[in-house]
Nucleic acid binder design. Sequence first.
DNA 1: ATGTCCTCTCTTAGAGGA
Length: 258
Amino acid sequence: MKIATYNVNGVNGRLPVLLRWLNETTPDLVCLQELKAPQEKFPEKAIQDAGYNAIWHGQKSWNGVAILARNAQPEEVRRALPGDPEDMHSRYIEASVNGILIGCLYLPNGNPAPGPKFDYKLEWFKRLTVHSAKLFAVGTPVLLAGDFNVMPTELDVYKPERWVDDALFRPETRAAFKKLVAQGWTDAIRKLYPEEIIYTFWDYFRNAYARNAGLRIDHFLLSPHLSNRLIAAGVDRNVRGWEKTSDHAPVWIELADK
DNA sequence: ATGTCCTCTCTTAGAGGA
């Protein structure tokens, strides 16, 4: 089973790229982030025609997350992270599909830091950590996938020294990610490629993709059940080079059948 | 500071976010 995560940066503006990628790589499950579309403007028909059933949590202009499944129906479990009823951002959706519990997330960017946006990021991170501990404790196969807006280590940034004050790389952010992973999660890419330079995002600015000035901020965290089934993982880097593409590339894992 | 791309609006230019 192949599972992918892709920050599309506008699901409607990105539709030709998304459909081409789905058609070429046919993942079984897909987590999307940054739909940037209200609930009623999600391109359900086009995605259905591509062979996917979808659930999504939209929002006007910003954020937005979705879970797509091929030959299956994602059964929605929740569409918000618990812990703050005032939080109106569409950044989390969770579903059960093919015997796996999937949390699809778009963690806040947090810039500029310090400031209220950074505070919100760290608060969101805390809520995610509380919730993920509960998911982990259930003991069923669980994965968290999405745009975490964190480079976990210096290996995950093209020029670490330039990013130390950025919300994606500040010590507090890295510590929060480390604390989350320490619950027992496995960072899928790093399990298979512990020392390789692997990026999932290249800024639109300054010709970043051509220079490979990238970041690794899109992650898969696997519970032990799924970590044991992990047989491959990668980044569809070429998609970042397509016309009218997202600033992120899709990331995927392959799990052995039970 | 800048660069670029997305979306929305006090809409065809500018603002806000990333």
